[in-house]
Amino acid sequence: MPQMTTSATTALTATDVLTARLPALREFGYWMRRYRRIWRGTVVISVANPLLFLAALGAGLGKLVDANHSGHLAGTPYLDFLAPGLLAASAMQNGFVEGAFPVFQSSRSRGNYPAAAATSMRPGDILAGHLLFVAFRVLLSGLLFLAVVVAFGVVRPARALLAAGPVLLTGMAFAAPLMAWAVRVDRQSRLNGLYRFVVMPLYMLSGTFFPVGQLPHWLRAVAACTPLYQGVALTRSAALGGGDAGAAAVHACYLLALTAAGVWAASRSYTRRLNS
């Protein structure tokens, strides 16, 4: 018994030392404790949604598409084309949901952010801890989606692991800029409007459901500038293979640059908001 007590005390002390040296882990721990209450529901949704989409659109509508031998798919079965696109689009949606509404609520006067800022934690620590949790949620949902895709036989397990990186990049490319904006938004209706009039239309400009080559020429250039198009192209290349390495590098650099810009903007927004 004394040995067990000593070991527990040592472990607790090590944890305390780690969180003292990395205050962002305290903020991350707060979000993880909240997540423990709802994780079962989110796991079910993360599995049920791709299962329904792939069964209805991929296995159902896909038979009609494949029967007509669309030249835009270059011989790729529609289910194989659709699954990586839905995977990237799901990462975008998760990045928006996790990076917009929780940040807005937390930045209110009775939210988590002002309470954390009243301690020794700096705005940068609060941001870093929350970003770490958002990355965890995007990656976890992406891995569950990939498990369904593998079960459908669209992607091999090894390829699924390669696609996890693009999924995380896509989600964070949306989440980081959104966090920079959401922390300063004064009305939730603005977040709802952004989702309805900006995020949702991106599905039609990303190559998720149909190749971008089917769009008018002028609209293809617009689509190529959107982050979801970049995420879909990178995810599809990683999941299916056979893509151009140079193009994949461009897609990855685009998403990394957008994420970095979002983190930089968020650090300034959080400092202004929480120090005001």
Rank of each mutant, 00 (worst) to 15 (best):
F210T: 12
N192C: 01
T76H: 05
F136Y: 12
A100C: 08
N68Y: 14
T42V: 02
A248I: 10
W39L: 10
L255K: 01
H72F: 15
V198N: 10
S206H: 03
R110Y: 15
A55V: 11
C225Y: 09
V148H: 08
Q3M: 03
A118K: 11
A117R: 14
G111H: 04
P157T: 06
A175E: 01
L131Y: 08
L240K: 07
T259W: 04
L127K: 13
A67V: 04
M92R: 08
R34K: 07
N112C: 07
L140N: 12
L219E: 08
A249S: 14
M172R: 09
S107K: 10
F81P: 05
N68K: 11
R26T: 14
A248Q: 12
P177H: 02
L86V: 01
L64Q: 12
T5L: 11
A257R: 09
A245N: 04
A20V: 07
R108H: 00
R236T: 12
A147R: 09
A151C: 03
L51T: 13
A88G: 09
A173R: 08
Y195I: 05
Q214V: 09
G129E: 01
T208W: 06
A260W: 00
A83W: 06
V183H: 07
G75M: 05
A163T: 04
L178R: 00
A83R: 06
M172C: 11
A173L: 01
Q93C: 08
F197A: 04
G213I: 02
S141F: 10
D186Y: 10
T15Y: 15
A245Y: 13
A147N: 02
R26L: 14
L140R: 15
P216C: 03
M121A: 15
A180Q: 09
G62C: 07
L162G: 10
Y113R: 02
A261N: 12
T170N: 13
R236G: 01
A89L: 11
D125K: 05
V199W: 08
A249N: 02
R196D: 13
W181F: 07
F152G: 07
F81V: 03
L274E: 04
L274C: 05
A238H: 10
P23Y: 06
R37H: 15
H130P: 06
I45H: 09
M92Q: 03
A261G: 15
T271K: 13
R137Q: 15
A88N: 13
L82E: 00
L57M: 13
V138D: 11
F133I: 01
A135W: 10
